[in-house]
Write a protein that binds this DNA or RNA. Structure first.
Length: 508
RNA sequence: GGCAGCGUAGCUCAGUUGGUGAGAGCGCCGGAUUCAUAACCCGGAGGUCGGCAGUUCAAAUCUGCCCGCUGCUACCA
């Protein structure tokens, strides 16, 4: 039976254009998905958009269009960005999809049958103009016309204490089961810093959760309770089940939810509690990644430093952008990006490193061996080179499987350095004049090292890797990780080499 | 306010059962080389290891206090 792997991103809220955060999450998740496929897994990769809720309804009304028409349009740039970035999703789910609505209601019914849902009242500071509740802490104090102190929302609209009927979920009953889950499965929440935060939060006790709203209707209707739509997180989280094929879906449980650090609580407390209530298996792990900051600052419209990921990919190229984000940002930590950083990083790693390694050895095969792949043979330092490659390959797999994506690429760069060192040490350009056979051995070893390197880099740079493997004469059916020991047939005619990673010399 | 974590070369960071001269990558400088994308290879410069005090024969590594930063969380007015 084939090994299976079900991985998801969070779903994006399409009330604006996709930003770097979406691109980053999609790319990181795609790298893991592609890694698993190359490693022999049957992979299901789900991503999509979260299309219900008040803000969408308001935005649609502001444009005087139906919410459905609004999200039909607003979700398109997200799909387009995924396509542009080479995101290998199997389904782009939209929470307005018909099967998802039905699933949400099934899930709700299960939780209700379990006795975990009850009708109560939701109270809070409510802004009629915003149609939203705010926490006390969010409010600002101002003065009215008469000089009396009043409370305003963050949008400067008046708020009043409001009581609304709402369904509640007995989240409080799940504190102990959750703590047990964390104790038994400490890698359920990653990285460890997030794990500690969530465990501490749960240990402090949980309050029941408001699960429905009556103040707007753009959402999934609560079964048998007219006027109520489901709390957005029920709707949003359930997408993972819909994408798995339903409550008893063939792909469930998920192996990994990749999400932003800002939604860790929903995925590691609410979500498993909902599933426990409904008697459904829990996902294996949740990974909360960090944010990508623009020169160390959070991107915001008011600061005017918002970067369009589509334009970024267009300018630098998809593979260069993907490499930078995965290599430069410690997965799980925040990262910083700038044009200079992208250029510096990719010039060093791709142009000077992988690209140059391939080019220098390939060009010698072209000039000295008529482009015919040389066979293996003795060379000085060959054993040491192979030991390094083997050790670093192990480090790569350990890092990838441990979701230390950046560490995996660090290991790959170690392989590049080992291969370059071996090449320089043997100086095949000198051997070309004295001992062509020895030269051929060096070229073979270097090309095979390059082949191994490029195989490992495929999840990150699928397009460029494919071109490099073509140049290296690697058969299209010998590019999975199981083929890592399969050398290219001696005598294989190699195409005329072309630089795959040109050095970026444009001034910023 | 509580809990947790962090502060080591220009940048990003590794380095705690305390003990040979404090490290890596990138950047920078020099050398060598010419197969290659002015790349690769070799070498070098650069750090009061946030600050102060303490424990110890010995502390980046332990303790206390202080400064700065981050995350989670709570709350007053």
């Amino acid at each position: 039976m084939t090994k299976r792997y079900y991985i998801t991103t969070a779903i994006a809220y399409p009330n604006g254009k996709p930003h770097m955060g979406h691109a980053y999450e999609a790319i990181a998740t795609d790298v893991i998905a592609r890694f698993k496929r190359l490693d022999g897994y049957d992979v299901r990769f789900l991503t999509g958009t979260d299309e219900h809720g008040l803000k969408i309804a308001q935005a649609a009304r502001a444009e005087d269009v139906e919410p459905r028409a609004y999200v039909d349009r607003m979700s398109q740039p997200f799909i387009a960005l995924d396509r542009q970035l080479g995101i290998s999703f199997d389904r782009f789910i939209r929470t307005t999809d018909a099967d998802h609505k039905a699933l949400c209601q099934e899930l709700w019914t299960r939780m209700a049958e379990q006795g975990d849902l009850y009708l109560g009242r939701y109270e809070g500071w409510y802004s009629v103009r915003d149609e939203a509740y705010y926490d006390e802490a969010e409010l600002v104090v101002a003065e009215d016309a008469a000089g009396k102190p009043i409370k305003l929302s963050p949008q400067q609209t008046p708020v009043e204490w409001t009581v609304e009927e709402s369904w509640f979920f007995k989240l409080s009953a799940y504190a102990e089961p959750l703590l047990k889950l964390y104790a038994e499965q400490p890698d359920f929440i990653q990285p460890i810093s997030r794990f500690n935060e969530m465990r501490s939060f749960v240990a402090g006790g949980l309050s029941d959760l408001s699960m429905s709203r009556t103040s707007f209707d753009w959402g999934v209707p609560v079964p048998g309770s007219p006027g109520h739509v489901m709390y957005v997180w029920v709707d949003a989280l359930a997408n993972y089940l819909t994408g798995a094929g339903g409550l008893e879906g063939e792909w469930w449980p998920a192996d990994l939810h990749v999400i932003g650090k800002d939604v860790v609580r929903f995925h590691t407390i609410y979500w498993p509690a909902f599933l426990m209530s409904a008697g459904i298996a829990l996902p294996k792990a949740v990974f909360g990644h960090g944010f990508v900051l623009n020169r160390g600052e959070k991107m915001s419209k008011s600061v005017g430093n918002v970067v369009d990921p589509a334009a970024m990919a267009e300018r630098f190229g998809v593979d260069r952008l993907r490499w930078f984000l995965v290599r430069e940002v410690a997965f799980g930590e925040d990262g910083s990006y700038s044009d200079e950083a992208i250029i510096e990083r990719t010039n060093a790693d791709l142009a000077n490193g992988i690209g140059n390694l391939a080019q220098r050895s390939l060009s010698m095969v072209g000039k000295n061996l008529d482009g015919a792949m040389p066979g293996p043979g003795e060379a000085a330092g060959l054993d040491a080179l192979n030991d390094s490659l083997e050790m670093l390959t192990e480090a790569y797999f350990a890092a990838m499987n441990g979701l230390q994506l950046h560490k995996a690429l660090e290991a790959v760069m170690g392989m590049v350095a080992a291969a370059n060192g071996f090449f320089a040490e043997n100086a095949p350009w000198s051997l070309a004049k004295t001992d062509v056979g020895a030269m051929a051995n060096v070229l073979h070893a270097t090309l095979d090292a390059t082949r191994r390197i490029v195989l490992l880099v495929q999840p990150v740079m699928p397009e460029a890797s494919a071109r490099l493997l073509d140049l290296l004469g690697v058969a299209s059916d010998a590019r999975d990780f199981k083929d890592i020991g399969v050398i290219v047939d001696t005598g294989t005619q190699l195409p005329v080499p072309q630089g795959v990673f040109p050095r970026w010399s444009e001034a910023v």
